[in-house]
């Protein structure tokens, strides 16, 4: 390594250390706060509506992640492999949920479901301000992130293997299932992890479209908001720590799944 190279590494190391240190400090700040009053921190977690919120968060984020993966992967494959009119428009629209403020997603969904003819349907189905609204709000954003990840994955994969598979007797669908999807597994795991994490932490759209209804549409980010509003900062910090813990477990599992795939693909080396 030349002198310049060493300096380059030094500089980015310092930046990295500062940033990672900041993140760690943020978590530790929460920990410090709750250790000051463990009793009320545990008290918050013991409350039934908070436990409901934890279950509801886990359930809705999981459901949204699965939906996002199927929908987002399908659209990504279509846009990556096919040429059709309006393709650029589709590609642009898929970015909307990423660059729009989350609140706008929530308001738009609310207007769509309550101020258009869809309202009649909503009156029957009960989407807005109920659990389906949480899943819908999370999925709308989740799909966009899956799309970005999977489109990049498909774009980076040559179509040649698919074509060869077709020449060997596979249908287009068969080639997609047997060749494309297995080879895109790394991307799928990443996309699923991002979709889940986004859904798990989604707040703005949920607040507007699902309401912040205690015990009904209260997911963990909403709990934090409600606890802050009633002055329970320690409780809010405690819920945040539980979110961190849950996310750590889920993302660790996802990482492990991705690594296992990598190892088994590289396995059998001479």
């Amino acid at each position: 390594m030349t002198h310049g190279d060493r300096n380059f590494i030094k500089v980015i190391s310092v930046v990295a250390a500062a940033y990672v240190g900041l993140l760690l400090a943020m978590v530790l700040a929460n920990v410090m706060l709750i250790t000051g009053d463990l009793a009320s921190a545990w008290g918050t977690l013991a409350r039934p509506e908070i436990q409901q919120a934890i279950l509801l968060s886990l359930g809705t984020s999981l459901l949204s992640a699965v939906l996002s993966i199927w929908i987002g992967t399908g659209i990504a494959y279509l846009v990556s492999r096919e040429r059709f009119p309006g393709q650029r428009l589709v590609d642009f629209l898929m970015d909307l949920p990423i660059f729009l403020p989350p609140l706008v997603i929530g308001i738009s969904l609310l207007i769509l479901f309550r101020r258009t003819p869809l309202a009649a349907l909503d009156d029957v189905l009960g989407v807005a301000f109920y659990v389906p609204a949480i899943v819908l709000a999370q999925t709308v954003v989740g799909v966009a992130f899956v799309y970005r990840t999977m489109k990049a994955t498909f774009d980076s994969m040559s179509t040649r293997q698919e074509r060869i598979a077709q020449s060997l007797g596979c249908s287009r669908f068969g080639a997609f299932c047997k060749i494309t999807l297995p080879q895109a597994r790394q991307g799928l795991v990443t996309a699923a992890a991002i979709a889940w994490a986004r859904s798990f932490g989604e707040f703005g759209p949920v607040l507007i479209f699902a309401g912040s209804i205690r015990g009904r549409t209260e997911v963990m980010p909403v709990s934090i908001y409600l606890e802050l509003n009633s002055g329970n900062l320690i409780g809010a910090a405690m819920i945040a720590l539980v979110m961190i813990a849950i996310a750590a477990v889920v993302l660790f599992v996802a990482r492990a799944a991705a690594d296992e795939q990598k190892i088994s693909q590289e396995g059998g080396e001479q």
Binding site: P48, A53, L56, L58, G59, L62, L63, V66, C177
Partner: peptide
């Protein structure tokens, strides 16, 4: 396709169970 479909269905079932479990308000008196 069968494996991802089955995996997804299982995950959906787990998710729905969690949501259902959360939706049943614990009897608070």
């Amino acid at each position: 396709m069968i494996r991802p479909a089955v995996t997804s269905l299982i995950l959906v079932a787990v998710a729905v169970a969690l949501i259902y479990r959360a939706g049943a308000p614990p009897s608070a008196g």
